[in-house]
Design a protein around this nucleic acid. Structure first.
Length: 443
RNA sequence: GGCCUCAUCGUCUAAUGGUUAGGACACUUGCUUUUCAAGCAAGUAACCGGGGUUCGACUCCCCGUGAGGUCACCA
């Protein structure tokens, strides 16, 4: 049995698209599962749109996701190979040079190379979909190269797949209709037909092909927003494929173990950012405390630019941040919304919001004075001692009536973490200061 | 429009002729030492339509309908 050889054939005409990532993931899983070889082939025959910058971005993005490959080729460096094949086709009269009016520049004459097409019906077997047939008459004698030194996509793909010994062509279903013309070229070349597998595309909310206008489609967008590579990888892989074990959260190695080409779904799946966020949170929860803290700290520092940076306070709020985010950029959004400001600066407190509903200002002031007294008596100021000191009192007087004003006095916010936690982070002096200030504003 | 492909909760999916049609995300509700978050528990919600085949169809066949892809001197 000949060993499996697959390819990653991105065209470097844009930043790495999630569809490119998905293509790579599926090919990677299949190849690694079968101890195969992966060939990264930069399909840059379109000289006008291809750039080295995009090629680098695609490599970086795939590597970031944890993927790898075994060989690297660039089509622009294989022009001699294509020319030899084109000349062979012309010599054998399977292709011919045609002088005609340019479609790109109407009015000017060009000569292109067309494949002689007998118009037969091509039937191929798709691993995912079964047999697919096409009548190729309407393809006519299609163009395979602009000149002997300027091959077009279909020709280059077929020549390379044959030269590189590709055994399995695994790609999106947008290529189904390209397959018959590639088989026609293959047969003219006398090349062996590989196995084909066309998986469905990922869709946007409106069920159309994912496009830039409808949201983020570049891997780098997700990377910049603070998604973890394992989460994006896991989501992209399982959107359109279900592991036989039924598990949803899987590492790359675990996916390799469970992967079967025939388990790929047949219908397109909508890319749902909410589900991606859930995956990301799952992976964030797996991070060690120190790994989480160092990354969170840097996001906080870069987000709280409107405040004087205080690293010791920032470190104290890390556990609380951890419960509240799914993606690193959530830290930025929450910071911009001022959700953490009160830890760093005194909040502005509105007197009428201090009392809990239906409790008088006088009664509330009384509660706050009692709280202040209880707090001042504490020697240890951690969450449990604060709670132990206040809980009996709050239970006796009414928890909401006591705790709401206490929490609001400390945060100036109607929604926030609980007051015991906030007080412990602020420290005894600052806590007492804020309670005193609230009492003053009530009178 | 031609050709090709596809069709289970809002979304991702399980089921391979016999199930009270299961799970996940989201959502709703409740619980969890006030609020928020997190956590826990419960709940709402689906077989595109019509014909067949069969003792029996989500599962098989046909016809509709709908959705997507593709029709380059791009890839």
């Amino acid at each position: 049995m000949n060993s499996v050889r697959v390819r990653f054939p991105p065209s470097p005409t844009g930043f790495c698209h999630v569809g490119t990532a998905r293509m790579a993931i599926v090919n990677y899983l299949f190849a690694r599962k079968n101890n195969g070889t992966i060939i990264f082939r930069s399909e840059d025959t379109d000289k006008e749109r291809s750039t080295r910058e995009f090629e680098d971005d695609i490599k970086d993005s795939l590597t970031w996701l944890g993927l790898s490959w075994d060989e690297f080729h660039r089509q622009s460096e294989r022009i001699d190979v294509y020319r030899a094949e084109i000349e062979k086709l012309i010599d054998e009269d399977k292709a011919y040079v045609s002088d005609e009016e340019s479609k790109k520049d109407p009015g000017t004459m060009v000569s292109v190379i067309r494949l002689r097409n007998s118009g037969k019906t091509i039937t191929f077997t798709d691993v995912i979909r079964g047999d697919i047939s096409f009548d190729t008459t309407e393809l006519k004698d299609f163009v395979i190269a602009r000149s002997k030194d300027d091959p077009l996509y279909h020709l280059a793909v077929v020549v390379d797949d044959a030269a590189m010994g590709i055994t399995h062509v695994i790609r999106g279903e947008d290529h189904i209709s390209n397959t018959p013309r590639q088989i026609l070229i293959q047969e003219a070349l006398g090349a062996k037909r590989p196995m084909y597998a066309h998986y469905p595309l990922h869709l946007s909310l409106d069920r159309a092909k994912l496009s830039k206008r409808k949201g983020d489609v570049a891997v780098k967008n997700y990377r910049e927003k603070g998604y973890l590579p394992q989460a994006l990888l896991n989501y992209l892989a399982t959107l359109g494929w279900t592991a036989p074990s039924g598990r949803e959260v899987l590492s790359l190695d675990e996916m390799v173990q469970e992967f079967e080409l025939s388990d790929l779904h047949k219908s397109g799946a909508v890319f749902d950012v909410e589900k991606l966020r859930w995956f990301n949170r799952e992976y964030m929860l797996k991070l060690s405390d120190s790994a989480f803290a160092s990354e969170a700290l840097s996001w906080l520092e870069n987000s709280l630019t409107h405040l004087n940076w205080n690293e010791s306070i920032a470190k104290k709020i890390i556990p609380l941040v951890r419960e509240r985010i799914s993606v690193w950029s959530d830290i930025h959004e929450q910071s911009m919304n001022g959700e953490y400001d009160y830890f760093f600066v005194q909040p502005s407190v509105e007197a009428h919001l201090i009392p809990m509903k239906k409790i008088s200002a006088a009664k509330t002031a009384e509660h706050l004075r009692d709280i202040k007294t209880l707090l001042e008596a504490l020697n240890v100021f951690d969450v449990s001692s604060i709670k132990d000191a206040l809980w009996p009192y709050a239970t006796k007087e009414g928890r909401g009536a006591v705790l709401w004003p206490f929490r609001y006095s400390l945060t100036g916010k109607e929604q926030s973490p609980d007051p015991f936690l906030v007080a412990s982070i602020l420290g005894k002096d600052e806590t007492v200061r804020r309670v005193s200030k609230a009492i003053a504003s009530l009178s």
